[in-house]
């Protein structure tokens, strides 16, 4: 069994330590922390990939910087706080990891952080789709 990178494990631990109701509030905190897109992406909406599995319009872009560190950029509307929260968890949880670490993140990570009951399994599928698309984009990036 692969061990989760520390920051993803920390997020998981933080959620699981809370009562169901408070998990939702932590998700809201993540939602509020989703950074604005860097200016270079705001000027290039063509670079962003829409996550069509999500209920609301969310776009993601993955980047591997000069130090081989991974970054996930995402944007979603303010009226879609749940989707923003999912994107923010992944953006923070994956930030700075190596390509190998990101690709090794279990696909069921979204189901492992205790949100199924608070949010519903159906809604959580949006987060799985985001993770899946981020990994696929990354594979294309390193192959290309």
């Amino acid at each position: 069994m692969t061990t989760l990178p520390a920051q993803l494990a920390d997020i998981q631990e933080d959620f699981l330590a809370l009562e169901q109701k408070d998990r939702l509030l932590l998700l809201l905190e993540f939602s509020n922390e989703l950074p604005e897109l860097p200016a270079r992406f705001q000027e290039h909406p063509d670079l962003l990939e829409r996550v069509v599995e999500c209920q609301s319009p969310v776009f993601i872009f993955v980047e591997v910087d000069a130090d081989s560190a991974f970054h996930l950029h995402a944007t979603a509307p303010r009226e879609s706080p749940t989707t923003r929260g999912f994107a923010s968890i992944l953006a923070q949880g994956l930030d700075g990891l190596s390509v190998e670490q990101v690709l090794a993140v279990p696909d069921d990570y979204p189901q492992s952080i205790g949100l199924s009951a608070a949010v519903s399994p159906l809604r959580l599928r949006g987060m799985s789709a985001m993770l899946g698309r981020a990994k696929r984009q990354l594979r294309e990036r390193i192959a290309g």
């Binding site: 939702l24 609301s56 303010r78 009226e79 879609s80 706080p81 749940t82 519903s120 159906l122 809604r123």
Partner: peptide, 19 residues
Amino acid sequence: DVLLYEVGHIPGSVKIDWH
């Protein structure tokens, strides 16, 4: 959206989520 109520709601209202 299950979090929209938490972002802001009509004063005094309560939330019921379908899921």
